[in-house]
Design a binder for these strands. Structure first.
Length: 563
RNA sequence: UGGGGAAUUGUGUAAAGGCAGCACGAAUGGCUCUGAACCAUUUAGUCGGGGUUCGAAUCCCUGUUCCCCAGCCA
């Protein structure tokens, strides 16, 4: 036996960077990360990757993790979004976030003072060009931009004009504060980027206190610096903003120096991840709100029955790198199945009821049979399930003409009712349209509990619910929202909504569930035997229970039958 | 045709010059009071071409492909 080689090092590139910084004693061994959303929409599974990454890194290295709202554009931001984001990040990270929620808008004063510092150093100027003129003078990838006519204004004039901008003296869009860097840079971000613009809109937190608002590039590094973030982690598209991020910080004296690192954002098959498009789905009523269980939002996944643990596990397994990848939705489904298999309580529920009469079972008799709550966890114990002469089984579980390898109920065949008895089909009835509406069976009293004293085996075990005891419920089955693996495909001119899956939501009424389910709470997780994982919808009432299907069980029979 | 990134089995992700590993998928078999889960086995990969080296996914040269950038959005 050879010893396992010293190959423990399966660190992602960010962990490698952090560990090297730790070895070098950078920041005194301190690690601080943050998740910096703009409150302009609900968080989705793509954000989950960033949240898990940032909070996970902080946890792993004994550091701190902040939630910071990058609320620098009042025209797009709302309090509703702030609330939902706080809720989602707390839920996902399992972190109370106490005293660790910040707002960029709280730093506006300091940012303004630093802007004055840049002006005084001759590194920033007030520009009178209109937005259109700025665009026209920015140049192209191969042609340098042309300098603003105001580029060489005196410090005094800049100071005066900037102060008057802040006072609200000038109309929106009439002037900007720009950094004086390099109009000939091949990196557009360095061609005298705008630091402040005039926006006369009420900010969701500061109201009308300000009418100049900092741009992302100017603000972000300062926010990180104020919070003493050591590792400022963002997505790949900000790579060419890094030189500017560094440039701004380089101009300021006595300021904490964070570093920016970039990783690839999450791509998921059959999933639209753009906030703009998700908003379109909500506004166009293609879904029932941001927390519609079909949405890839954190709120939607939560309502669908996903656990935060499973989403975190998913983020762990997909890893992090700088390659723009698209992860198969199966990975997410695997993560939730794996988690729910361990924790979900097993219950019986019939989604498409078919009546079964046990001919030789005494009329009016009821008995209670013991069923295991979760074979994966003995501590969950057992429960009693009522049994009687008339039952419901799943329509799928009876076939008039059974295929060769079908081992459920069919004329003359014997199956086991889970935790109950062996039954043998003797007859069945059809309605005028030829649909099977009732199955007649006999049971073997010696098989009580589900096993036969003579040792004879049955191939199939099916679930059931007693008619007179059944709980009536509505069940909602969800499928992928889109039919195309990548509805986001930019090379496809067709509107992404053309790929909406018409069958993404199936509402099943008249489902018959085991009576114990009437005490279900939304936080409970259930596996309906042989069907899938479900949870009580938070919006449902005792009078009208609604269950959401989180994910179905794998079904190798369906695959077999397709052949 | 400027600049910045990236490329490892079907999909992702490791290997810091030394056995190309892991997860998901797929296939096969086993087990089973869930056709689930679980267990076992198998499958399949270093973008191309040169070079350095005893030895290259890794270093050098070169080519290719993909992504991002011309908001007073973030």
């Amino acid at each position: 036996m050879s010893e396992p080689v010293e190959k423990e090092r399966s660190l992602n590139f960010l962990e490698q960077i952090i560990e090297e910084d730790l070895r070098n004693g950078k920041h005194g061994g301190r690690v601080a990360t943050r998740f910096p959303p703009e409150p302009n929409g609900y968080l989705h599974i793509g954000h989950a990757k960033s949240i898990c990454l940032n909070s996970g890194l902080a946890k792993k290295y004994g550091g701190t993790f902040f939630l910071r709202f990058d609320d620098t554009n009042p025209s797009k931001e709302e309090t509703e979004y702030v609330d939902s984001i706080v809720n989602d990040v707390k839920w996902l990270s399992g972190d109370s976030l106490e005293n660790r929620i910040f707002f960029a808008s709280d730093y506006f004063g300091r940012m303004y003072d630093w802007a004055l510092e840049l002006i005084k150093k001759g590194k920033a100027y007030v520009c009178d060009l209109s937005g259109e003129q700025v665009r026209e003078t920015r140049g192209t990838p191969t042609v340098p931009g042309t300098p603003s006519p105001n580029r060489n204004r005196s410090v005094e004039e800049n100071l005066d004009l900037f102060e008057r901008m802040r006072q609200g003296e000038f109309p929106e869009g009439s002037r900007t504060l720009r950094a004086k860097i390099d109009m000939g840079s091949p990196n557009f971000n360095m061609r005298d980027p705008v630091m402040y613009r005039i926006v006369k809109a009420a900010h969701h937190r500061t109201g009308d206190k300000w009418c100049v608002y900092p741009m992302y590039d100017w603000a972000h590094g300062l926010e990180d610096s104020i919070e003493k973030i050591t590792h400022s982690i963002c997505t790949l598209e900000f790579e060419h903003h890094r030189p500017l991020y560094d440039w701004f910080l380089d101009q300021l004296d006595d300021i904490f120096r964070p570093r920016q690192y970039e990783f690839a954002r999450l791509g998921l098959t059959y999933t639209v991840m753009s906030k703009r498009k998700l908003l379109e789905l909500v506004k166009g009523r293609f879904v029932n709100g941001w927390d519609d269980p079909r949405m890839p939002t954190i709120a939607g996944l939560r309502r669908r029955g996903y656990t935060s643990e499973s989403i975190r596990a998913f983020c762990r397994t997909i890893g992090v790198a700088k390659f723009n990848s698209t992860i198969d939705l199966l990975m997410l489904e695997n993560a939730i199945r794996e988690d729910l298999n361990k924790r979900a309580l097993r219950r019986m529920g019939v989604l498409h009821p078919l009546k079964v009469v046990i001919e030789n079972y005494p009329e009016g008799q009821t008995e209670e049979l013991e069923a295991i709550n979760n074979p994966e966890n003995e501590a969950d114990g057992t429960r009693l399930v009522p049994f009687s002469k008339t039952l419901y089984i799943e329509q799928d579980d009876f076939r008039e003409d059974a295929p060769k390898k079908y081992f459920r109920l069919a004329p003359g065949k014997e199956v086991r009712l889970r935790y109950a008895y062996y039954i043998t089909c003797t007859d069945f009835k059809k309605d005028a349209d030829g649909n099977v509406i009732e199955v007649r069976c006999t049971y073997d009293p010696a098989t009580r509990g589900g096993s036969s004293p003579d040792g004879r085996k049955v191939q199939g075990t099916i679930h059931w619910v007693s008619v007179e005891h059944a709980l009536d419920a509505e069940v909602r089955e969800y499928d992928r929202l889109f039919t195309k693996p990548n509805p986001d495909d930019p090379s496809d001119p067709t509107d992404f909504k053309a790929y909406l899956n018409p069958d993404s939501l199936r509402v099943l009424t008249g489902c018959k569930l085991e009576p114990s389910l009437k005490d279900a709470k939304p936080e409970d997780r259930f596996q309906f035997e042989r069907l899938g994982y479900f949870c009580l919808d938070p919006g449902s009432t005792p009078e009208k229970p609604v269950f959401n299907r989180t994910v179905s069980l794998r079904d190798s029979w369906a695959k077999e039958e397709k052949k």
